[in-house]
Design a protein around this nucleic acid. Structure first.
Lengths: 330, 330
DNA sequence: ATGAAAGCGCTAACAT
DNA sequence: ATGTTAGCGCTTTCAT
């Protein structure tokens, strides 16, 4: 606390009114150039910094943007945060990061905190069991949903990945290679993305005249551990699958880890198609095939929506196409 | 703005003084239990949220912690941020992330922003050319330096990695395997970490009776691209090295990428020892050897220093030992 | 147990 | 061009 430099302290120091200081600092035309220079110089000398608490209290935007992510350990989220942080900095926005771990309670708490600091917007990957009465919490905030749609009353926008085509293409690719028994590990039905991806997988199965009964489908709350466990359970099951498709970022890494720890050769022992295409997939086993999600584009769009203060708050649902990257593992 | 719910609006609604509301909300003993319940109930109904701007203006801590990192794309930084974010959430602290891209200007700007919001602390990986006169900027903030020490007047603490032992061990390992010409790519002298690691490399060379002239050392501002370029330059140089040691997180990934793109077999074509040991190193080429840095411990310590409001602001330099993980690549 | 007043730093709206 | 006043939401201090 001590002796913070304020417009008043500068005014006192200069023997003028604090309003003149305020105006000078705000570059108002109504200040004598000479006065303005004096003020600016003294302010710089004293190390004056505007108090954003004070301006926030007056009702000005805080420029704080919340970013709610399941985690930062998965490369997709990290790279998204990276891109968004850079873009936000360019716009003078503050990024406040909260990790939800896909837990509704943590999400709830994070949003409460953002309301306290009067965040002007939130970019969030909605957690599965998101409480519905949270809706009111967003009254003043622009809400941009990412990857999944949550149960919030009226998000300003939803940036989704149209991955049905890629998932279909993945199955087509495997079917054409002769695979009859294909495994799928994905998010559970509490996730909009989980539902969509599973449906895409089943559709593709049917289209390729593969009975769902010959497939092995595992759905649960997504995580690295879940992907790992489900992959093992599939490998150890009595239904021998010859190919595996992953329907989630963390799941993909978990399943891959399970395969490699087991010493499986991809694609000889198992054709593997991951999800999210992190940078290192191209380095593993001659290249891991996977569904690639356009991270930078997503972040770019989010930043764009954040920028225009426009009350065009209803950007609605915006889809970004994913793509299938085939390498050696399938 | 519209109609924010404040203690005054609640007081008006209840026909009591706003002070009673304030006390009730703060769980003061000086409120009739019945009154308190009424207030709490109404506040919940109305969706009241305390304005942190108002309390900040009164001088209370904002609980905002700044995190200045070069980027989030490298797994080390991402995992550190992940761990710290979780720990901070537990302590009710807000994490504000700014990426510096190792650029002094961005760092400067980020710190200015943090001063504006009255951040109570910053955890930062100092950028190379950090302006010295920035020191004043920290007057009110607890500063925790990470990985490197910067030119700031008096950081509250510095959490460093004692990696000289590991770098030495890496060289020992390579020398014992018969390597005579070893390459090293690391950060330039503007970085405290760069200086230390290079010194450790040279010391190890001498200890193993290898002339520095037989080695190829490349130093520059660290980045993925730099690691990539330097690795290529070493591979294409006329001095054929048979082993490579990396002295930086991004450098390591960049160099690895260069090797793999070239189709090099590790360790047959080149013995490779990376830095930072990201999760995926164990999946590549049967396992990439590398110097492992204790991320979680670093984050844990940072969180601990953040917690105790104690004015024991001078934790000084705290070192965390790294370790050498030998896998197949060397 | 409850209330009234003051002040944190800032700017819009009025003076002058 | 410069100054004065008031009020944003909150808590500390001092009444009642």
């Amino acid at each position: 606390m001590a002796n913070r430099v304020t417009i008043k302290s500068i005014a006192l120091d200069l023997g003028i009114s604090h309003m003149t200081v305020s105006r000078a600092l705000a570059n108002s035309p109504n200040v004598h150039p000479k006065t303005r220079d004096t003020v600016l110089k003294r302010a710089a000398e004293l190390g004056y910094v505007k108090s954003s608490a004070a301006t926030a209290m007056r009702g000005d935007s805080t420029g704080i943007v919340g970013l709610l992510l399941p985690n930062l350990a998965n490369e997709f989220y990290a790279v998204f945060a990276n891109a968004l942080a850079l873009l936000c900095a360019d716009q003078g926005l503050h990024l406040m990061i909260h990790l939800t771990n896909d837990d509704a309670t943590r999400e709830h708490l994070a949003i409460l905190r953002l309301r306290e600091v009067q965040a002007s917007a939130v970019v969030m990957v909605p957690a599965p069991g998101a409480a519905a009465d949270l809706g009111r919490g967003f009254s003043e905030m622009q809400v941009i949903q990412l990857i999944r749609t949550g149960d919030h009353h009226s998000p300003s926008a939803a940036l989704l990945v149209e991955d049905r085509g890629s998932i279909g293409a993945a199955v087509d690719h495997l079917a054409k290679a002769g695979h009859q028994r294909i495994g799928y590990i994905g998010g559970h039905a509490a996730l909009s993305s989980g539902r969509h991806r599973e449906a895409a997988f089943r559709d593709a199965l049917k289209r390729n005249r593969l009975s769902p009964d010959t497939a092995v489908i595992r759905l649960d709350p997504p995580s690295f551990e879940m992907g790992h466990a489900m992959c093992l359970s599939i490998l150890e099951g009595d239904t021998a699958v010859t190919a595996l498709v992953c329907g989630g970022f963390e799941i993909s890494n978990g399943a891959l880890d399970a395969c490699l720890r087991r010493g499986l050769k991809l694609p000889d022992d198992l054709a593997f198609i991951g999800y999210g295409d992190p940078s290192f997939y191209r380095w593993i086993e001659g290249g891991i095939s996977s569904i690639a999600v356009p991270v930078e584009e997503l972040a770019g769009k989010a930043a764009e929506l954040l920028s225009r203060e426009v009350k065009a708050k209803n950007a609605g649902i915006i889809s970004f196409p994913s793509s299938l990257t085939i390498r050696k593992s399938a």
